[in-house]
Amino acid sequence: MISETVKRGPFSHINWKLWRSVILALLILAAILFFNARNPAETRAVLRSTLRYAVPLILGALCGIFCERAGIVNIGIEGQMLLSAFTSYMTNAWTGNLMFSLFVGMVTGSIVGLFLAFLSIKLKLNQVIGGTVINILAAGITGYFYQVGTTTKGKFASIPLGPLADIPIIGPLLFNNPPITYIAIVLVIVSQIVLFNTRWGLRTRAVGEHPRAADTLGVDVFKIRYLNVLIGGVMAGLAGAFLTLEGVGLFERGMTNGRGFIALAVMIFGKWNPISSAMAALFFGFANAMQTQLQFMGIQIAHQFVGMIPYLLTIIVVSGFVGRSRAPAAEGIPYEKE
């Protein structure tokens, strides 16, 4: 019960959060310009590498966001990505049609998503266990059915967007990329709008926070959950397809190498918010690119400690030491119509 505020500082009306982000953005911009002036090629290489490392993380995190905003915990992103990477690669090897392979990857991701949704919504299986099952099965299936010796006819190439690509710094960074990267960038913005400015997003968030309230207003909780997990699956499918169709053009067993779990970290770090998560992914990507760049420059640091950074940061964030993040309230709880 509210009676009175115990304490309220004199500066409480200032929007510190906004100012903090503005100052941070300016600092980053200044740093980029500074390094760009000193060594443009290296700066561009690091920034592009940052983006590239971030793309699968962004897509994986978007998968997590759509699932969890609708109240379904998804720790099977890793498995979804791996299976999609596998099927899109195999399709590419057979047909050589990149667009069709991409489509197959997305379909795979969404089928696995549907499977998770079926387990958690229909069968009310504990969702963490459901995700674990998906991860184990994905490793088994791809390992068992992977045919070595298949080769592909190629992978997605960069498409410069006309004059935009010639803008200094951001041109090559943002407007000269292969298709899935563009899709990822667009999806971040679209997801942000969908979640916070559309009917679908409002209903999705309501279902993730208080499904019964949504149900009493005639919102079909199950449909919203199924479809969001499906949409999430498409994102994870894109992430997997990125690895085999755009990144390497090659499949390997276990090639996701924990990216699905880092995507989870990214999602939490970004507080279940597409744009913030994209920022977090870029930050992790930057840490990775810098680690490579430092080695290029002959500076040796124990790489295991660099490798720990994303995980340590996630623990710190989830523990609320810095910027507490709050998960959707109804997450992980199967909804039961009475």
Partner: peptide, 10 residues
């Protein structure tokens, strides 16, 4: 692949 790219770009 991405590391090779980073090297190529510089």
């Amino acid at each position: 692949a991405s590391t090779a790219k980073q090297a190529i770009e510089q």
